[in-house]
């Protein structure tokens, strides 16, 4: 099932592997490398058709300076933070509770409710576009951060519940029973017994949800507009002027926008991988 470790294959295979690996990696990263190079080019290189060759001058300071000091990017970044952090807290908090309820209590319809949460994951979100937009309009939440946060929490809770429920289900049930025998109230069991045990799951889930929400573009353009509420993913498009698109600034902006989730990944790498594999390996 697992691929054979490379150091156990024949010598010429190892050489081939070591030669191909960097090549494939560069090929795979090519679009990202292009964006990075675009971000230090001057605007004139795009009018000259000088897309792929050496930049005619290096404008890194100029371009990134403009992104930070002469555009609305700082506001967009701030919006992204205001949208992402409450969503992470909300979705994780809710799913801890739903996960506890579905994982610990045996009641009629438990499985049915659980399936509803899971099924929610399989709804293609595009079909929700029009109803959700109308709903937020009617509730007065259109073009507010609150509207976006509430929707994200609602939509992410499905996946998060699946995740937490399975994790809590896998805890040794004896711990909970022991607490019950001691006469501990149910909410105290949740707070003092279960929550400390699921801390790794919470960490993993937070990292995952953070990247999901930070990188969301679809709902950002559907539910918000304008500088005040738009997160950075759709804010980057404001570098499209009335007539001209500033490709160099858009590239610089994209790099800046991509940094937080990347840093998050490196800082929390362990949790991230745990999050992706949790439950898949027993």
């Amino acid at each position: 099932m697992f691929p054979k470790p490379i150091h156990r294959s024949a010598a010429h295979w190892q050489v081939f592997y070591q030669g191909m690996l960097p090549l494939v990696m560069i090929l795979w990263l090519l679009p990202l490398i292009a964006v990075a190079i675009f971000s230090i080019k001057p605007a004139v290189d795009f009018t000259n058709g000088n897309y792929w060759s050496w930049p005619s001058s290096f404008e890194a300071v100029e371009n990134y300076g403009k992104v930070f000091f002469a555009s609305d990017m700082p506001q967009y970044l701030l919006n992204s933070i205001y949208i992402t952090i409450p969503t992470v807290i909300g979705a994780v908090a809710l799913s801890c509770m739903t996960g506890f309820a579905l994982g610990v209590y045996k009641f009629k319809g438990n499985l049915l409710i659980f399936f509803f949460f899971v099924a929610g994951n399989f709804v293609p979100f595009q079909i929700l576009m029009v109803p959700v937009r109308d709903l937020t309009l009617d509730m007065g939440l259109y073009n507010t951060k609150t509207g976006l946060v509430l929707f994200h929490i609602a939509f992410q809770t499905g996946f998060c519940t699946l995740f937490m429920r399975n994790f809590i289900r896998a805890l040794p049930f004896e711990l909970i029973e022991a607490a019950r025998v001691e006469g501990v109230a149910e909410w105290r069991i949740f707070w003092f017994v279960v929550l400390p045990l699921v801390r790794p799951a919470i960490a993993a889930l937070s990292v995952l949800v953070f990247t999901f929400i930070w990188n969301d573009y679809f709902w950002a353009i559907v539910l918000t507009q304008g500088v005040e509420n738009t997160p950075v993913t759709s804010g980057i498009t404001s570098f499209n002027g009335q007539y001209r698109a500033a490709y160099h600034l858009m590239s610089a902006g994209s790099i800046v926008a991509a940094l937080p989730p990347v840093m998050m990944f490196f800082a929390m790498q362990k949790h991230f991988i745990a999050g992706l594999t949790l439950g898949s390996v027993k």
């Binding site: 004139v44 009018t47 000259n48 000088n50």
Partner: peptide
């Protein structure tokens, strides 16, 4: 905008466009 390199590099001789195209063409 992506069609401008043709005129800048001399692969095309003209473009029918509005006056907003002058600024990038001059820069180039």
């Amino acid at each position: 905008q992506e069609s401008l390199p043709f005129i800048v590099n001399g692969d095309a001789a003209a473009i029918l466009i509005g006056n907003f195209a002058v600024a990038p063409l001059r820069e180039a």
